[in-house]
Design a protein around this nucleic acid. Structure first.
Ligand code: FES
Ligand code: FES
Lengths: 153, 153
DNA sequence: ACTTTATTCAACTATTTCAGTCAACAAAAA
DNA sequence: TTTTTGTTGACTGAAATAGTTGAATAAAGT
């Protein structure tokens, strides 16, 4: 299960992607609209900014915005920044490989052999999904929801 | 990342699967061979036994064994018992669905739309892999390792 | 210059989970 | 009955999670 931190961060990114053309967004507005504790959101956004995913401006007229277009930010990148490596075991991580201290031989480790496949599939989906893709998915889901209602009427 | 508990548990299951025909295995042997803290391993195995995956016998000649054949125990089952639901968010879990308290509408949640795909792929792989499958994979990997050495010579 | 509006940063706290241990207990074989 | 072995729940220390507090800093408007 992903942490609340990650979930809040992803919600914030989707929110900012939706308003990408509108200039800087206030933390306070974001926190209110998505019901995220404001102070907690502050340090999440700061993390994302330090990683280059977001940019910010202080003072009047300031706020947060995406650091690059929504098509250039993937779920995979965001999750790695907040949650750590995607891989279920360190020995199959491509971005943050580490040896498994518990396992003798890496080549013949049964856990590794299975988890490699899991990691690869997760990476394929998450690195292949940008914020722009998610906006499209959401719009599609909304339309389908509306049609269902229309159909009922 | 999976917890050590889960990793130890999976190692134990693979170990017991390999020795499925040999009758009960002592915790002490298992702990020594896989270098798992014995006391910790005890309550991991107990969990698995209470879930029906393992069986045990007390006294001399006792020990632990699989509760059913290796072809009937999947990685997915084992991981769910030790690590909890596979799903990254509770709202896409099939075995342990729960509403996401943080999200307003479930139907149009961008996180959910993406994580649904992730969960389904993970479930496909992990529920589709039995202990017997893993043993075969390990043997295959060992053979490939040997061939590589032969080739070098 | 001064105030207002914002983000930034360090430090602090409470709660929960993880990793592992202890000691008393129960069952079965010798 | 004694010894060997597994069973169980309670316990502990360390780390991660989920926040909070409060002061510092920066930019814009007056
Ligand atoms: S080597 Fe990484 S899980 Fe075994
Ligand atoms: S992630 Fe579950 S509804 Fe949004």
């Amino acid at each position: 299960m992903i942490s609340k931190k990650t979930k809040y961060g992803l919600k914030a990114l989707i929110y900012l992607a939706r308003r990408y053309e509108q200039g800087p967004i206030l933390i306070a507005d974001l926190a209110r609209d998505e019901s995220i504790p404001k102070k907690f959101l502050e340090n999440i956004l700061l993390n994302l900014k330090n990683a280059g995913v977001l940019q910010s401006r202080k003072g009047r007229g300031g706020g947060y915005a995406l650091g690059r277009p929504p098509e250039k930010i993937t779920f995979g990148q965001a999750i790695r920044l907040m949650e750590g490596p995607l891989a279920p075991v360190p020995c199959v991580s491509e971005m943050a490989y580490a040896r498994c201290t518990e396992c003798g031989s890496e080549l013949t480790c049964g856990i590794r052999l299975v988890m490699k496949d899991v990691r690869d599939e997760m990476a394929r989906i998450l690195d292949g999904t940008t914020l722009a893709d998610v906006l499209v998915k959401i719009d599609g889901a909304e339309d389908r929801g509306r049609n269902l209602i229309d159909f009922c009427i």
